[in-house]
């Protein structure tokens, strides 16, 4: 049978042992495509940096493509998943955003970005889990090193004020 793709004479297709081994590992689900491609954490961070900047500039679709690529390359990267969640959230794809945050938290339960944003989304839906997420976000980022952590802190303060007001409202009729 003739080959569909023909190679020039003396140019037999060759794959080095390392690549073949990586591909096999990928096929077995033991390694990620990022590992097959040889993408390092540094490169991923550099790409993520661009994605963050695109998202900040409002170029959400481009940011989404970048983060989706990162997540596809390495689904174990909880930071990329959380970042993708934020992009989905801004795009109004809230269910997908929650899914990404949850996936990120499944791998890294101390990711403040995923905690804070999922908490806020849950609260919007009226789910009590949101309080826990926000409180956990404040706990894992006590110094407000991330914007998400700072927002979580502000939200918790606001919620607590509202709760105090609510309690006062509840207490007034009973005392009267």
């Amino acid at each position: 049978m003739n080959r569909i793709i023909k190679h020039a004479e003396g140019m037999e297709p060759r794959m080095d042992v390392g690549t073949a081994r990586k591909l096999k590992a990928f096929a077995r689900g033991e390694s990620t495509w990022a590992e097959v491609e040889g993408m390092t954490f540094e490169e991923a961070k550099a790409i993520a940096q661009v994605g963050c900047e695109l998202a900040a500039a409002g170029r959400l679709d481009e940011a989404r493509i970048l983060f989706e690529g990162l997540v596809e390359g390495n689904p174990r990267d909880s930071a990329a998943r959380a970042a993708l969640g934020t992009v989905y959230q801004k795009l109004g794809r809230l269910d997908e955003a929650v899914a990404e945050y949850s996936a990120a938290l499944a791998r890294d339960s101390a990711n403040p970005v995923a905690l804070a944003n999922r908490g806020e989304l849950y609260l919007r839906k009226g789910e009590r889990q949101g309080f826990t997420d926000l409180a956990n976000a404040v706990e894992v980022d006590p110094h407000g090193e991330t914007a998400a952590g700072r927002r979580a802190r502000a939200l918790v303060k606001a919620i607590a004020l509202v709760a105090v007001e609510q309690l006062r409202g509840d207490a007034t009729p009973s005392s009267a």
Binding site: C52, A55, A56, A83, T86, A97, N117, A148
Partner: peptide, 8 residues
């Protein structure tokens, strides 16, 4: 939903 990449 501020986009941040917070590595572990």
């Amino acid at each position: 939903a501020k986009t941040e990449y917070r590595a572990q």
